[in-house]
Amino acid sequence: MDGLKVMPLAMLPPGQKARIVSLSGGRGLQAHLYGMGLGLGSEVMVIYRGAPGPFLVAVKETRLAMGQGMAYKIMVSLENKVEQARPLQQPNNL
């Protein structure tokens, strides 16, 4: 993975769009975040940087407040083609 372009969400400048490449934390927490719209590949944008204090983050139409600890657990990439780096890419025919 291109190390230069991957960074914690906490480092992302406000207004800049990026995609989530990884989440850390317990399995339960991850599953919870998926439900809130924070999945791998989701487009995110920082609206308001806390530091100190929570961040205001946009994920599609959802606005999430997250603490700094959380913002460091989400790694994002500025590159929009994260998708291709992932293993399961075959389109599914329903």
Binding site: A31, G39, P87, L88
Partner: peptide, 17 residues
């Protein structure tokens, strides 16, 4: 085989869909 936990793939599949 896929270097990924199935739960991640499942979640990802839901997102894609």
């Amino acid at each position: 085989q896929y270097e990924e936990a199935p739960e991640k793939s499942i979640a990802h599949q839901r997102y894609r869909e």
